[in-house]
Design a protein around this nucleic acid. Sequence first.
DNA 1: AATGTGACGGACC
DNA 2: TGGTCCGCCACAT
Length: 115
Amino acid sequence: MKFEEEVKRCIKAIPRGKVATYAQIAALAGNHRAARQVARVLHASSDKDRLPWHRVINSRGGISLRRGRGFETQRKLLRGEGVFVDRSGRVDLNGFQWEPPGLPSKAANEFLRRL
DNA sequence: AATGTGACGGACC
DNA sequence: TGGTCCGCCACAT
């Protein structure tokens, strides 16, 4: 399956109230070095494919969208499902990052991240 | 085949 | 905290 399709599948799997990082999605989709593609996919088809795009944030736990260009909307959507986002758009990854089935521990995620 | 496009990430002041 | 710099790569043109 195309990498892009895998990316969409992974994003759709993020549950309400949780977030995932671009790099995390890239790793789950099969290429830990393709974080930029995740961004590209979101930019290109988050609307068309009804992706929960707001649940994807950067590796520092922050909203990547610029103010006035989606930042406020993303923060609102996240807060709407119980995710605490501070004024600068930061989310506490230790509390809200999605832990995919089969990768129960933070250690496993860490392993994937630095592969 | 070559080039452009990204909402990235990590290293490094 | 923040800023720049640079390596990364699937996909469209």
